[in-house]
């Protein structure tokens, strides 16, 4: 894959920036959380790409195989995914509460309500 040596990382940066754009440029809180998920997954892709070795196999040790991909990024990301869903759930719970108190999940309407108080 040498002819596309950095392709993976560039795609990661692109995905990360798309997620970032959703977070800063769109007002709906649920959409922002989806953007944050995109951002998060792009980081996962980056770590996992770093751990890959050309021609290697999954790090489950068996006879006769000498080249394995790096298990360390896998461990870090595996736990990060489950922690990620737990924190996203917390974020969504906050959105639900905001909806109940303000009657909207649009950022500008929430600001307007805050100022009129």
């Amino acid at each position: 894959m040498s002819e596309f040596g950095l392709f993976n990382y560039w795609v990661v940066m692109l995905l990360m920036m798309i997620g970032f754009y959703i977070v800063i440029a769109q007002g709906n809180l649920v959409k922002k959380l989806i953007g944050l998920t995109l951002f998060q997954t792009s980081v996962f892709i980056m770590y996992i790409s770093l751990g890959k070795i050309e021609g290697a196999t999954a790090p489950i040790l068996i006879e006769g195989v000498t080249l394995y991909s790096n298990p360390l990024p896998h461990v870090l990301i595996l736990t990060a995914i489950v922690v990620g869903i737990a924190t996203t759930a917390l974020g969504l719970a906050l959105v639900v509460r905001i909806k109940e108190s303000y009657g909207t999940v649009e950022e500008d309407e929430i600001h307007a309500k805050d100022e009129s108080c």
Binding site: G51, K52, I81
Partner: peptide, 15 residues
């Protein structure tokens, strides 16, 4: 594809 089978497993069920 990246040999991260454990991670793929988790992402498929979570993501």
């Amino acid at each position: 594809m990246m040999d991260a089978v454990d991670v793929a497993f988790t992402e498929a069920s979570v993501g």
